Amino acid sequence: MELTADQDDELRALTTSSEVSAAVGTRARIVLWHAEGRMKKDIAVLAGVSRPTVDLWLGRYAADGAAGLFATKPGGPREQVSADVRSHVLALTRVTPPAETGLSHWSTRTMADYVTRTTGTPISHHWVANLWREHGLKPQKQGTFKLSKDPAFADKVADIVGLYLDPPGSAVVLSLDEKTQIQALDRTQPLLPIEFDRSEQRTHDYVRHGTTNLFAALNVGTGEVVGDCVPSRNGPAFLAFLKKAVAPHAGREIHVVLDNLSTHTTPDVKAWLAANPNVHFHFTPTGSSWLNQIETWFGIITRQAIRRGTFASVQVLVRTIRAYITSWNTDPRPFQWTATADEILAKVRLTQLNIKKLVANNTK
């Protein structure tokens, strides 16, 4: 079982929260231990439960996410919630939480708390979990759709999606970005239940040895990745990596998809582009990093090599990243982009309409 960063954070929060029972915390640890690759029989010993109990909670988590770790009471009346509130929750689920919440994604509890507070209609996180299950929504796995305020959003989407779906003949399309402040963490073994220090409320100790920044460029056509780890993320470092990324394609037209950071538009970068007219930049809309295919690859390397790795130094972390890139390129897999620009823009218009309706309903 592999966990996303959000899932990992949510489960670890359950293990330390004073608002949930110790039983729920133990169930969360079961899932975390299983994600670390521990055998189920060992997990049963660590958690002080039977092997079937381990299977039970792993199964419930796989089906319902964190909501499945909360035991439901049999019987009892079904919550009566109006159609307006149901629509309200469904629309909110499909967008990024409002900025004032400070949330990066919805959980069943944060959704229930937010809707109860803003609408005055009390709903439980169990009801939210059932609604999400009924409509096949899993925001903890797939994320939400973030709206961009870029006035050139439509034009940029059409430009970049056009490169993905119908690249210019014989041209190379590179998806480029940087993953910053990757930590070299030295993880100790989790504490056994009998040794668990409830005053500390933790299951791991961490020793941080520093960070590195990963520049990476994905060849959209072949799936090959060029990467480089650097101590500083600045204009000179970006330009040096850009030259490295385009070097294998000398003499060809090269289209680079990237975001419009200040380090990507320094005078030195602009001068280099002027001297290399075969290289063309295509900037993603503001707040729309999901449009850059390298972000998908960053997610993969994070899950498979970085998040639960143990690195005694930054040098060990860098060697691990380089080894992963070398291994990836032995059998590169290009990502298949399927959504057209019209489909994306239609989804944006629908989301904007839903938000306007929510605002109108809440101001009545």
Rank of each mutant, 00 (worst) to 15 (best):
T121Q: 05
Q315S: 00
R86V: 14
F196W: 12
P97M: 04
I194Q: 15
A62W: 15
I355Y: 03
D64H: 08
N354W: 03
W337C: 06
R78I: 14
K141H: 09
T326R: 11
T320V: 04
L185F: 14
E178A: 06
R202N: 13
V279D: 04
P167Q: 07
W33P: 03
F70Y: 10
S18R: 12
M111H: 06
G221D: 02
R78W: 10
R198W: 07
L291W: 06
P334E: 02
L90R: 00
W57M: 01
T4R: 06
Q293V: 02
A28M: 12
T93A: 13
F70I: 09
N354T: 06
R12A: 10
I325K: 10
E343P: 13
G169A: 09
R208E: 14
L353I: 05
P190S: 08
L317T: 12
T351L: 04
F70S: 13
A184W: 12
V49C: 08
Q181E: 11
I254L: 01
V54E: 01
E2P: 11
I160S: 05
A158R: 15
I43P: 06
D155Y: 03
D259K: 01
L345P: 02
V81K: 11
Q140E: 12
A158I: 15
V257P: 00
D113A: 09
R307T: 15
W106D: 02
G59M: 11
L90N: 03
P122H: 14
L69M: 03
R233H: 09
V161R: 14
G48Q: 07
W106A: 00
R308F: 07
A323M: 14
L350N: 04
S82I: 08
S107H: 06
T351Q: 00
F196N: 06
S327C: 11
T118S: 07
I306M: 01
D113P: 03
V24N: 10
I254S: 01
E100C: 03
G75D: 09
D259Q: 02
L174R: 00
I43R: 02
G59E: 12
R29W: 01
D8A: 09
I325N: 11
P332A: 13
W272I: 00
P334Y: 01
M1S: 12
D205I: 09
V269P: 08
A129E: 00
D8N: 13
R133D: 15
D197C: 15
A71Y: 10
T363Q: 07
M1E: 04
T266G: 05
D268I: 04
E195W: 14
L174G: 00
H105Q: 09
S107F: 15
T119S: 14
G102C: 13
A99W: 14
M39E: 07
A13P: 07
T53S: 12
L185E: 12
E100V: 08
A22M: 14
K270E: 13
A22C: 09
A83D: 13
E134L: 12
T108Q: 03
P267I: 06
A22Q: 13
K356Y: 03
V45A: 04
I254A: 00
H105M: 08
T212S: 15
V314K: 12
R198Y: 13
W272E: 04
T93H: 02
A339W: 02
K364Q: 11
P190M: 05
P277K: 06
T93Q: 03
P190V: 06
S21L: 08
T320F: 14
Y206H: 02
K146H: 09
